[in-house]
Structures are given as structure tokens and as C-alpha cells.
Design a protein around this nucleic acid. Structure first.
Lengths: 128, 128
DNA sequence: TTTAAAATCGCAACAATGTTGCATTATTAT
DNA sequence: ATAATAATGCAACATTGTTGCGATTTTAAA
């Protein structure tokens, strides 16, 4: 099992991971719950938290709630590698609106209503 | 007042708008509450919701909560103009992980730990 | 300016979600 | 097999999001 990300192998965690592997897209908490035969709300909460910390999954944010998805890249407990026009500083908690050039997204066929580019990290001020 | 976005002018709303104008960066709900002399939680909630609907402010999403900021562009009740690698379809509610070329963000001085590029709209399937 | 219709406010109440502590149970390594 | 360590499940609580409704305020028309 891929559980060798320093995550202890338990039946519940394996079941949750299985769900993620079977999902093509990001899934919401409710979708996860709906697909579990039985579950404890708190345990699931902690499982997702751990998976995120260990770099196994990452959060996908949108206005009406979070979704979760397997990390496609080499994420670990120190860093998630996924790509904001809003810079969120984990040190000072400020959110900076930074102007950045974003090339045209070639999303032909899609209707784009709103887009968000966000960056987490440490800002200039805190990086001193 | 800028309240001519079809928003009725009330003392409370003016006070909230004033806060936004005085804020250089996006602000959290708690920061708003902290800067109001007195407030009703529900009224504030509805005020923000209205401001967003009318295109006066927009949400800034990050993992540990939402922040809010004035819209810099010509947003209205039909569209917010701000810029995801995750595509959120408002029709089927799916979140697609789309591969997109993102140019280097020239954020020298910043430590980048995690970034998210997200797009809201209607996906190919639903746009038929 | 007065007044009536329409919208907002503020409160109660509740739903959903996030979080911690702790005793019990399961997992891992010896 | 067993002891140390971690995970589980429950209670309890905190935070946030949401609706209904009567009282109040705003707006616009008389």
C-alpha cells in the first residue's frame, strides 16, 4: 500500500484511500460519507486531516465548500505542489492581492464565470 | 455613495463598506466584526452575501477560512472577474483537475508552499 | 411632509461543520 | 506474545451558515 507515507495502515484508512483512488475528480465530504459503509464523523475528519498533512491528498477550495483529491505530484508533509493571484501568508495571515500575468487558459468549450489564482506561503515581510 | 449598485443605503451597510474601503488587503469575518462598533451576526452575514451577489466584493478562499475584498473590476450581479487549475462546474458541481500551463509567477522574496488556480463556470459537458 | 409599500434589521432557533479530551481498542515493533 | 504507541469512537463544545418572522427603517409616491 501507498500507506508508507508514514501513515499507519488501518481498515478505515484503507477504505477512504480506496475511495480516493476510485475517484476521477475531487470529492466532497458528503460524497465520501455517502460511499462509506459505516463511518465515525470525527475519525473521518481526522483521517482527511492526516492525509493532507502527509501529502497524500490536498484540498480543493471553492465558495460553497471544500473538496479533496489525491495529490498527483510528489507532495509530502513539508510541501504541497499544486499552483493564486491572492497571496496568503501563513505567518502574518494577511492575504495580498498580487498582480500577476496569467496567460490565456485554453479552456475552449467551457464557460468561465469566475477564476481564482491563490498562493500559500510566506510573504516578503515575514521572510526576513 | 457607491451604493448605487442597486443596494439600499443603510447605516450598517455604509459602515461595512467603509471598512472595506479602508482595508488594503482582503479581510476575514472576524476582522470585520472586530472593527464594527456593534453588529448583528446575521445581518453581517446577509450584508456580505448581498455585497457579493451585487458584485461589490468577492470571496478570497483559503484552507482555513474565507476572506473578503472589494472588487477591483467591473463586477456585477451576473459575473465576477477575478482568475484555477481546478475547474468547478456550477451546473454538475464536479471539480475537474485541468492541466494548464502556468507561467512562472515572479514572486521574488516570497516563499511559496502551495498554490491553487481555480475556475468557476460551466464545463464542456454541461455547456451543450 | 406624510404615508404606505417594500426592504432591512435583529432575534430565536436550528443545521452543518470543525475541534478537543479521553477511555477503549487496534497496530506495530520488540 | 507483549508492551509501547497510535487510532478509534463517543461526548461535548465551538464556529459558522441559514431560515423565519415580527419590528423597524428606507424609499418613493401622494
Amino acid at each position: 500500500m501507498l500507506e508508507k507515507k508514514q501513515i499507519r495502515k488501518t481498515p478505515f484508512r484503507q477504505e477512504v484511500l480506496k475511495l480516493f483512488k476510485a475517484s476521477k475528480n475531487a470529492i466532497s465530504l458528503k460524497e465520501i460519507e455517502r460511499n462509506l459503509t459505516s463511518f465515525d464523523r470525527i475519525t473521518l475528519y481526522r483521517t482527511l486531516k492526516l492525509f493532507i498533512e502527509k501529502g497524500l491528498i490536498h484540498e480543493v477550495l471553492h465558495s460553497s465548500g471544500k473538496k479533496y483529491a489525491l495529490c498527483k505530484e510528489q507532495c509530502d508533509e513539508h510541501q504541497h505542489q499544486h499552483n493564486h493571484l491572492h497571496f496568503h501568508c501563513s505567518s502574518c495571515k494577511e492575504s495580498f492581492c498580487l498582480k500577476t500575468h496569467i496567460q490565456d487558459l485554453n479552456l475552449t468549450g467551457y464557460i468561465i464565470e469566475q477564476t481564482d489564482l491563490s498562493v500559500h506561503g510566506v510573504c516578503k515581510k515575514c521572510n526576513n
